[in-house]
Amino acid sequence: MSGFFTLVGRDLRLAVRQGGALGTALGFYLVVVAMLPLGLGADLKLLSRIAPGVLWIALLLSALLSLGRVFESDYEDGSLDVLATGPLPLELVAAAKALAHWISTSVPLALLAPVLGILLNLELVAYPALVATMLIGTPAVSFLGAIGAALTLTARRGGLLIALLVLPLYVPTLIFGIAAISAMLGPDDVAPPLLILTAISLGAIVLGPLAAAAALRTQMQ
């Protein structure tokens, strides 16, 4: 398993050195969220009501933006071939890269969400709920997204295609993420949506690497 963390460590170090990817994702998140009040009108009541949904959807789009690079650079520079000759099965290679994406992109996006919540007049009491559900739900974003990234590795129009393939898979995460926030703020029981959100993330951690590795293996032939 140590090869796993070696790989996660390298990807994180690369993310820090390259820098640009995270900044772009955060910037995109900010811009999308800022566009909404401009399009919908500055009705603060309306904004605060739709804020959790807007923040979640914009987070999904921002994460998608950076997903294309998860396997692409390793495929283009030949690293993927060498990774495949290592002691790790390709499934764990895919898992390590998805985990590195989660740490380097999804978590910072989730942590930025409350700041953007200010722009949308989100009530203060909702902040912990927002961040908690995002941290629990975003593993599914990175691990299911890895499937799309792997499938579109050699495809033309990769970037747009990922969005088409992956966004429908994010529907459960989105719905239960929002449901968990509403439950935390309202009278409903928090446990069911939060547990289901956790289950979806855990399922994604299994399904994502399996499917992504199968797709990578096919394209490495």
Binding site: S73, E76, S79
Partner: peptide, 9 residues
């Protein structure tokens, strides 16, 4: 053919 080298390391 490809070297598998990261320019940022």
């Amino acid at each position: 053919h490809l070297d598998g080298i990261k320019p940022h390391l």
